[in-house]
Design a protein around this nucleic acid. Structure first.
Lengths: 351, 351
DNA sequence: CTGAAAGCGCTAACAC
DNA sequence: GTGTTAGCGCTTTCAG
């Protein structure tokens, strides 16, 4: 009941009690306290009682850091993602899976900053976390080579890492873009444009390439329809200007990621999708409340997050196993914006 | 260059090198290595060079855990929030402020689960984090009393903690509800209903009370207009049914938090706010893209997050300072849904 | 300015 | 079954 210190008769203790204090209080050996704390069954019941009483009396709580130093494992995995505190179902799945495996999650935001990614990753290594999941952004992760060689388990999510060989789980970008294109094509669109992320980014590269491939596969011209680049209001606005004007404007749009989809919607006004076919790659929050509701190619983010943890656990268990790449299927979510029929007049050069 | 192990001539080393290895390799004392690693300026340049060469040769990276055990501080603060991986500008601000202060952030989701909150908080205590920020959900946090007595710094965010006295930073809930009501009243609404969180939750209690006070202050009847409770589609649907039907239906709505706002929108259809005045408490993602765009009382989340870290740092620096409560102002964001004029016919009992 | 030695709080060999 | 004794890898008194 007293605010600080135990009630064992001695004067108030200035610092937190340790196992030594508990052992002395209980009149047993240090080793016995450790056993009781770790629920070792090979301790006599009377000792257990004495130790537990001493623990309660002193308000003792073991120091996890010391245990970690001694045992070598932290029971913690790190996640370096672009943004915590944003909607990120993969991160939610990572946290849940980790917790279910008895692992603590240490999540940090790289914030799309290569230097910060590096800081975070190296800090996690210095902390000797049991493993790391990373949504890579940097162009070169060679600085992790020594850590990998020393057995640090690392798994990449969404994109492979560059310069080093680690496990990776990612969406089937090519199939997703193909599905989006096919969907719009089915609804009569022959002039479909793509606006998406920069081709400096791996997924941007994959998605733009898949879009070009889709055009070619359908015997359609590629001219001026593919607009990868930075996701800024200006750049996206210019791309829209370009594809929606001229003699043969696009009647439908594929947006390469959530930020692009939102930039397009903000530029054209939310109702744009009632005139234009729009399919977004990746889910958009509140997509169901927009008018029209937004049709998207949704990533199986829960699966990605869960798989990332599973790959990491497998690597922790066997550091020498060969690096794997897992590709997770995507799925269309038909909601309205992708089902706008192409205007009849837009048949290409039908004169 | 070799993938593992140092190039110092000896056979490959099986485990990670330690400071002892570096000292041997460099031919200096352990103490000197420690100094170089910690950038202690009182080391001769030639020694620095030798040590750095050895560090590079062995690929040595210090073990942060051992340092933490020895120094007693972890350089890490914990944040137990309802959800990481959801939009949470306060958490983003916490992370940014922490990073700017050289602190690592360990964020965990309590997931609205009292038992999980307890697990997370006690785990953070066992890890001897430098301090904890918590968005409390539990009804009783007495289990932290011993930790607080032992000097564990804790700051509550959004809601005060129950049963213990800790620093707290939160929004001015009463003023926010007052502003929302006043705004709708200005636009002619005399039948305004409130749907919000359960009064078991502190902020739900404050907001419902403030709403009742607003009605009374305007000389309006309270009958059937106040609907705090669980945020489920059913409960919110029933509340809507109740306030929108009958002889004197509400012409405007105040929704007590983001989840309630979305539940209302999903129930009534996104265009509901063109018929009904709606002001939401707390920001809604993509509020600007809805039609009509959503008027809300926005919390100063960045301020809240930053203040939480500052309160925590102050408490870490001086554990004996008295607990403070900081109330952060809120602000209206006028976007459309709150500016719908009341139908002329709705003057109360004007017969 | 550098070197030897003692610990941070815990776990895990070993004996008893 | 329990008790003694070394460490985990680092920082930090103390002497030189």
């Amino acid at each position: 009941m007293s605010p600080a210190g135990g009630g064992s008769g001695a004067a108030g203790r200035p610092k937190r009690p340790t196992m030594v204090d508990v052992a002395r209080e209980a009149g047993v050996a240090l080793r016995t306290v450790s056993r009781v704390v770790n629920d070792d069954p090979t301790v006599g019941p009377e000792y257990v009682a004495k130790v537990k009483a001493a623990i309660a009396a002193l308000n003792f709580r073991p120091d996890e850091r010391a245990r970690q130093l001694r045992t070598g494992v932290t029971g913690t995995i790190g996640a370096a993602v672009r943004r915590i505190a944003e909607i990120n179902p993969a991160l939610a799945a990572i946290e849940q899976t980790a917790r279910a495996s008895g692992l603590t999650l240490l999540a940090s935001s790289t914030d799309f900053d290569e230097a910060r990614e590096r800081d975070i990753l190296l800090s996690m290594c210095r902390q000797r976390l049991d493993g790391i999941i990373v949504e890579p952004i940097g162009e070169n992760h060679g600085y992790l080579e020594a850590e990998l060689a020393d057995g640090m388990p690392v798994v990449a999510m969404d994109r492979p890492m560059s310069g080093i060989s680690v496990d990776c789980v990612m969406s089937d970008n090519a199939a997703g873009i193909g599905m989006a294109f096919h969907h719009l094509h089915q609804h009569g669109h022959r002039r479909v444009a793509y606006i998406g992320d920069s081709e400096r980014v791996y997924s941007g590269r994959e998605r733009a390439a898949a879009f070009r491939a889709a055009l070619l596969a359908h015997g359609l011209p590629v001219d001026g329809l593919v607009h990868p680049g930075e996701i800024t209001a200006e750049r996206v606005g210019a791309a829209l200007e370009s594809v929606l004007s001229g003699p043969d404007p696009a009647t439908a749009l594929i947006t390469g990621n959530t930020d692009t989809t939102l930039a397009v919607l903000r530029r054209l006004g939310p109702a744009a999708a009632s005139r234009l076919g729009i399919v977004g790659f990746d889910e958009v929050p509140l997509a169901d409340l927009l008018q029209p509701a937004l049709t998207v190619v949704a990533q199986d983010t829960a699966n990605i997050g869960r798989t990332a943890v599973e790959l990491l656990r497998a690597r922790i268990a066997d550091p020498s196993r060969p690096a794997q790449r897992v590709v997770v299927p995507v799925a269309m979510r038909v909601r309205g914006s992708g089902e706008v029929a192409a205007p009849a007049a837009s048949a290409v050069n039908a004169g």
